[in-house]
Design a protein around this nucleic acid. Sequence first.
DNA 1: ATCATATACTTAGCGTAGCTAACTAACTAT
DNA 2: ATAGTTAGTTAGCTACGCTAAGTATATGAT
Lengths: 169, 169
Amino acid sequence: MDDRTPLADRVHSAAIHLLRRLRKQDDTSGVTPSRLSALSVVVFGGPKTIGQLASAEQVSAPTMTRLVVGMQRDGLVKRERDATDARVIWIRATPKGDRILREGRRRRVAQLARDLAELSPAEVEHLTHATEIIERITGRARSNSLGATLRPEDAARGASRGRARRRTR
Amino acid sequence: MDDRTPLADRVHSAAIHLLRRLRKQDDTSGVTPSRLSALSVVVFGGPKTIGQLASAEQVSAPTMTRLVVGMQRDGLVKRERDATDARVIWIRATPKGDRILREGRRRRVAQLARDLAELSPAEVEHLTHATEIIERITGRARSNSLGATLRPEDAARGASRGRARRRTR
DNA sequence: ATCATATACTTAGCGTAGCTAACTAACTAT
DNA sequence: ATAGTTAGTTAGCTACGCTAAGTATATGAT
């Protein structure tokens, strides 16, 4: 088989630049990417324990404890003790958390939707197929979409809270 | 025009999952994503000043100063004073820095290349076109590919990184 | 030549985010 | 009861992002 490295390189690069572009829509919520990502898990997946969240987000338990503390302080989630096991704590999104997450997601995807609006039907076709290919490769069956989302990876950079971020150029 | 939000959502999600998958190949180098990204700028673009690097990476000057300190400590780059302007400092990749970056990039993209090797010619076609569309949207003209690369964005393990911010005047 | 301003970078200090190690509390099993 | 396991927290370290302020050098006007 022939070498697909050059294509892989372009796909890789395209994915990175695409996400950087979209990420610029995010900063307005005032919630950091890590918190948004964890929040999305409970908004789309329902209440979760700290351990489940840590596992879903692939971070350590102490890290998730701290993320939850921050989200709770900001009123995005609330803790609920389990009825039968006093060790476990359920994290549930508050209406505010739900709203903030959905709005941020809409804002983020809206930019891309605008970009895509300019495409011809044939281009939409190509992009749709390509997306299916990538979904197949990553083993996703049309997941929740944002659920997994905002990991910094691009992680983007971290975060400072509160103040509005400035944009470039 | 019809609403492209559903497609945008899928493309967004696909890009995120794709990068998370690729990122898992990275952890071996021992270099953080932010440093790798900055390193890629000097490896592929030649010597740069701190200011140019900060601008290229969309981080503040102090942040870049610290990233450079870390890379220098690890032997990935070296500082060189400018011949005509004593204020500027040129950052150049060392052979070690060059090697580490290229190896990491190869390793990262190799995973995707293997995935793509299974595709049919028609699928490669679709993916190629889709990639061109994304490149057009993000305003890239087949850039160096990695140059911009490893921005955390998703940041998976390891560290999360940053976001686009502007420098002070 | 002097002085004010601008530029390039560094230092200092703050908040967030990741980790491991070690701790408390509570459940389970013997 | 006692030992072991599990859920979560606390403590301490590194790294990354920022702004504000400081130092050194360059430049332009007087």
